[in-house]
Design a protein around this nucleic acid. Structure first.
Lengths: 229, 229
DNA sequence: AATATAGTGTGTATTTTTTACACTAAGTAA
DNA sequence: TTACTTAGTGTAAAAAATACACACTATATT
């Protein structure tokens, strides 16, 4: 089949902005490159799209290779196609983001050979990034800001059981501003996707907060409805 | 440079959903293909991305080739990357939409050779489309539905001078539902981007409506703010 | 000249949503 | 027992969204 259509015009890659919430900070996963160009620079995890995989599959594969995680919801948000964005040739890149629960257990799996190592980095302390990755990240952050106002995606960053204060922290980190506690709670509970548990936070040296769980069934029904913060 | 990176993994194309409003109907521009595959089928206008143009430039070029129009705001909304979407090989396509003023004067320019002809078609009466173009269109329509609730992009479809009823018609066609006249007017005027003119509609056999103009300066300031319908 | 027709243009009351704002309760640690 | 720290709660005011109906005006028709 390729005989008919082989106008080589570009390679296609995927880049992923993987958000994680840890120790009260919003972080993304960066890799330290082990190859030219930009050897030794930090970059968003990414790779070329395989010939036998869709772009969505490619994004999942990259996530899996880096973290060992599967079945994570990833959302494509933009395709970056400037001619000169890659110094060694034409590469158009499709950007995805995902929100990950960083359980202490889920350490990163061995990263593939194109990277020396991978590391979670606070989004407020990002190093200089390779290629146009800073720009790709900026657009991704904008995207989830808009997104979190309409859908409660923030829960995907939290452990299975969480306190309302934790949820509020995530919102504040993503939106970059303080929210009123009472109004926030009213609103977030009004979505009807949180289940209060008969359980309290443990190991804190002050009054323990009630734990909540995220009700995936009800959450699914929310898609399509619009909600705002 | 290409020596280093020539992993051919896909061709990249652009497909455009060009919306126009004409004779009270919401239409898109379709072309009738003159080449295999899907010869003689209707399809969204599209083409391969050139090696020396960004994907945005490519979208503008395609629009220009088809309509002779330049300087139209086009928005990229999704990239479709299923492996089998093109029967003759791997082609990943980046989809854009634009809203066009269909002045009677602006007839379509000669279409490029890959199409026999181009035609505006009511979105409610689309023929069977080539490739996955029906799906690409569906996603585009969803996108502008969401978009029009937050930004008054509908004006881009209207002639320079228009009546409030025309604006309402566009909204109703895009959203696919009736809106209350009084509430609609209140809302649309509250955006502060419409200038009332000292002029009335002409050539109608009933009470003539007041004409309005769209204030681009104020419109620009709206970006960033959120507004809803 | 009178009338029919078809779309224009307008206001108010009700409900819902958003915002602003401050204190008491509970648990831990000293 | 006291001091400390975070959890948890309600209400009033303002703003936004909704529901709803009739008179006006320009033309065409008789």
């Amino acid at each position: 089949m390729k005989e008919v259509l082989p106008v080589f015009n570009s390679a296609v890659s995927i880049d992923c902005v993987l958000f994680g919430f840890d120790a009260g900070e919003l972080k993304i996963l960066l890799i330290e490159r082990n190859e030219e160009p930009y050897k030794d620079w930090w970059a968003l995890p990414g790779n070329l799209v395989g010939e036998e995989e869709s772009v969505d599959q490619s994004a999942s594969r990259i996530l899996h290779e880096l973290t060992g995680l599967s079945n994570i919801y990833m959302e494509q948000y933009y395709t970056f196609g400037e001619v000169k964005r890659h110094p060694q040739g034409r590469v158009i890149t499709v950007a995805y983001y995902a929100m990950l629960r960083l359980g202490g257990d889920k350490a990163l799996k061995p990263v593939s050979n194109y990277a020396k190592r991978a590391q979670w980095v606070n989004i407020k302390e990002l190093p200089k990034l390779a290629f146009d990755h800073q720009y790709i990240f900026d657009k991704g952050l904008e995207k989830i800001k808009r997104r979190i106002k309409h859908l409660p995606i923030a829960f995907e960053l939290l452990p299975e059981k969480f306190t309302l204060t934790q949820v509020q922290n995530v919102y504040e980190l993503i939106l970059g501003k303080k929210l009123d506690k009472r109004n926030f709670r009213k609103k977030i509970l009004s979505f009807g996707v949180l289940k209060e548990l008969n359980e309290k936070q443990k190991g804190v040296s002050f009054r323990a907060a009630t734990l909540y769980k995220f009700d995936k069934r009800k959450y699914a029904k929310l898609f399509g409805k619009e909600i705002s913060f």
